[in-house]
Every structure is written in C-alpha cells, then in structure tokens.
Design a protein around this nucleic acid. Structure first.
Lengths: 234, 234
DNA sequence: CGGTCGTTTGAAGTGGTTCAAGCCTTGTGG
DNA sequence: CCACAAGGCTTGAACCACTTCAAACGACCG
C-alpha cells in the first residue's frame, strides 16, 4: 500500500506535479490520490520491470513512476547497450510489447504503480487517461530531441544538453535544490545513452567543470549553471 | 481525383499492400478504394507537407502516401538537418503538431491523401483507423531501430542496415525487382539521416561496391545482396 | 583493513570530417 | 548537335574527436 504519511508524502507530491505538468485538470487533488490505497510495486536497482506481466496492448500497459530512476534500453547484437530514455519520478512509462526490442530497467531502487490499477480506482478515469496520453506525447517529443542530440554533435554538447533536459524535468517535480540535483547515473549509463565511451564521459565532465559550468560528484550535480550550459548547446 | 485506370493502378496497389502489411483485414478490396473518388494531393520535390492545414490533434492529422518518397526532418540550430525517417509509397505519415519540431518534406514528387477524407468516405472506417494505428506502431518501432543504428556503429554498417530496411519495406509493396530497386535519395539525404558527411557516404558506397554487395548508381541500387549485407550488419 | 567497483588520467590508434580539386551527368542555349 | 554551366559524385590529403588499452586512484562495504 502507498501508506504515505506527511513525512513520506514527497514522492506522491512529485507524481502529482508530473501529472499537472502533463496538463492534469484541477479536479484532482493529492488528497484524493492518497485515499485510493494503491499498491506500489518495488524494484531493486537493475531489475527489469514489466517483463513478467501478460501482453495486452493499449493504455493498460503503462506504469507510473513514483520514486527512483528507470531507463528504457536495449542490448545490441554486439553486446553493447543502447539507452533510449530515462524516466524520473512523476513520469509515465510505456511498457514494451516485446521485451526483446526494448526493456525497462530500474537504475535505482524504484517505486511505481500500474496505471490499470489507478484507472480502476480513481473517481476521474477520463482525466487520468487524458493525463497519461499527454505524458506519452511528451515522452515521444523527448525521443526526437534525444535523436537530434546524438547525431553530429560533439560529446560535450551531447552531455550538456542531456543534463539540461534532466535538470528541467527534475525541476518541474521539485527535485532541484538551488543549482544542485541528484543524478544517480554512472558514467557508463550516460555513455550508453549518449553513444560515447565511459572514459570520454569522464573527460566531458572534466571540461564542463573546468569551464565552471557544473560539478558532478558522488551522484550529485552541483553549481549547475543552466543558462550558460544551455547557451553552450546552441 | 484518384481516377486510376488499370494502367495507373500501381500506386494504389502498393498502398493496399502497405495496409495489408499493417494487418488490414480482408474486408477491404482495391475495387472499393477505387470507387471512393478520393482527392489526391500532389507535392513537388522539396515541398513541406501539411504545414498549411489547421492544427487538430488525433488520428485526423495523418496522410497516406500513395506515390513518391518523403522524409521526416528537422533543421538544427547549427543549420544542419536531421532526418528522422523516410516514408515510401503505402506508408502512413503522422503530421507534426508544431512544424518547428519536425517537418514532413517531399523528397521526390509526391502523391498522398488525407486520412480524414478517407475515413469519411470508406464503408469500413473502423478497419481503416485500425490499420492506421498499426502503421503508426510500425513507424514507432522503426524509429527505435533507427536510433540504435546511428549510435556506436561504423558508418558502413549504418548505411548497410538502412539499405536493408528500405529494401525490405520496398519489397513489401512490390517496388523491388530482383536484386534492384529505385533509391531516389542523394548522398546528402542519406548523410543527414545517418549522421555522416555526404563525402563519407560516398566512401561507404565504394566499400560496399568493392565487397560486391551492391551498386548504387543513378538513383538506383542494383546487385543488392540482401543476405550478405544483413550478415554484415550483425 | 583489504577488496571491489567506479572514476580519473595518459598514450597511442583510428574512423570520420573538412577542404579542395577533378569528374561525370544532365539540362540549356546557340 | 555541340558548348557550356550547374549540380552531384568521387578522390586525395590533412586534421581532429573519440576510442581503446592500461594503470593509478578513490569511495564504499564487508
């Protein structure tokens, strides 16, 4: 159960922020969600999410990320991994129909709920599915962004523009504090997302640090100068 | 009007093949489509398609490609162009909501119909929208493929795997003759799709030719050894 | 305290870019 | 029918960004 008291309430607040961002009407309130008694799934880091469930197409194959980071990835024939996107708390994840083409993998410990469950219990099912399809549209747009980011841009700019995207998304759900935010990704994960070697991700971070644009240490980004980094990307 | 007699019937046959491929039930027949008197839009090479129309979300913002090639592209801030995908006869094209994020551009002379029109006139609207959404799902899957193709793979393999994809799609709509097919793309367009320089596309074609895997000349591919090229990609 | 995993740095290699020139094809006008 | 111009394709040479390999360092966990 999502037995969230005032102390543990933050994941849910983020989720609601995510829904609002996706155009959720005001008919919703966090109180309503709290009373739904939804069962949250928990997954440890590295777990493949959703492969166990039955294959049914449609809106029901979606999960709603309450806490933690997941990535949408695929292992290429040569053994390398391609990460298509990251999802952060408040995001909606589309489960793949075939787990071979792409898999949803937990990067950190993860807490999520099945949208089918949510739809069955909410007093506003239409609003929920509306919000979900908006979230899907946002994710699709971000995938186009990601592709243009990867192609014919220097490694530093690939990294910088990904960081700006993640910063902005984290900011919208209240996970940015001043110029700092948690970034629970190893260089290897960033490398697999950006099409670079992990070694070169290190070098790119070094360049950004030397330009005094940001610091990445202990899975946290600090002194993130969003304006300057954004300028660098264009 | 799509006043197609037996002579001009081929584009429509391809389109129907495309629909069948997308899971179109047998309740359809080419005869039925011929009697619909659909108005086909014509666009010259280089034209931007669909920017003129009003912005309405949903299934109505789709067009159905009868003849010619189009690409889904975007101009990056640095002036370079990123091509996200190509569409061939029989494909369904999703029009972008905002023309800034991506544009549909005619590569050759193009003939297409609006899906809204088709839906309004067909006696099987449910079957049509079913086929359309299947086509959209296929295009989405191809976009994932394209991303994995671009990242961390050598230029020759990027080109080879794109050629295999295009070959297979053209084959399904009857546009492959033996080991040859028309490929009305300049090196520049392939380069913009593959994230390479046009010069290097030339070199890749040279390598493939020297390996006796294919020949590209005068906008036509000949001696296309699909099996060997496919093997090369893995 | 030692082992493991992740990060950092250096040195050498390579694949793709860029620039520039020549060539081939196609279209146009005399 | 030929001459010429324009656009795209081809090739070479130099350059640079990123990779790979290898070794050292640092944090975290038992």
């Amino acid at each position: 159960m999502l037995a969230l008291d005032a102390q543990e309430n933050r994941p849910l607040a983020r989720v609601i922020a995510g829904l609002m961002q996706a155009g959720e009407p005001e008919s919703w309130s966090s109180d309503e969600l709290l009373t739904l008694d939804l069962e949250a799934e928990h997954h440890p880091p590295g777990a493949v999410i959703g492969a166990a469930g039955a294959i049914e197409p449609g809106v029901t194959r979606m999960k709603w990320l309450l806490d933690g980071w997941v990535c949408e990835a695929r292992v290429l024939p040569n053994g390398q991994r391609q990460i298509f996107s990251f999802a952060i708390p408040g995001d909606v994840i589309e489960m793949p129909l075939s787990p071979r083409s792409r898999a949803i993998v937990a990067v950190t410990a993860v807490q999520c709920v099945d949208v089918a469950e949510l739809l069955a219990r909410t007093p506003h099912p239409d609003d929920v599915s509306e919000a979900m399809s908006r979230a899907v549209a946002l994710a699709t747009a971000r995938r186009y962004e990601h592709l243009s980011r990867l192609v014919r841009r220097s490694a530093v700019i690939r990294l910088a523009s990904l960081l700006v995207e993640l910063h902005d998304r984290l900011d919208q759900v209240g996970l940015v504090k001043g110029e700092a935010f948690a970034l629970p990704l190893r260089h290897e994960e960033l490398a697999d997302a950006l099409g670079l070697s992990p070694v070169h991700v290190t070098r790119c971070f070094k360049i950004l640090r030397q330009k005094r644009l940001m610091t990445m240490k202990f899975r946290r980004v600090t002194d993130f100068d969003r304006a300057e980094i954004k300028k660098l990307c264009d």
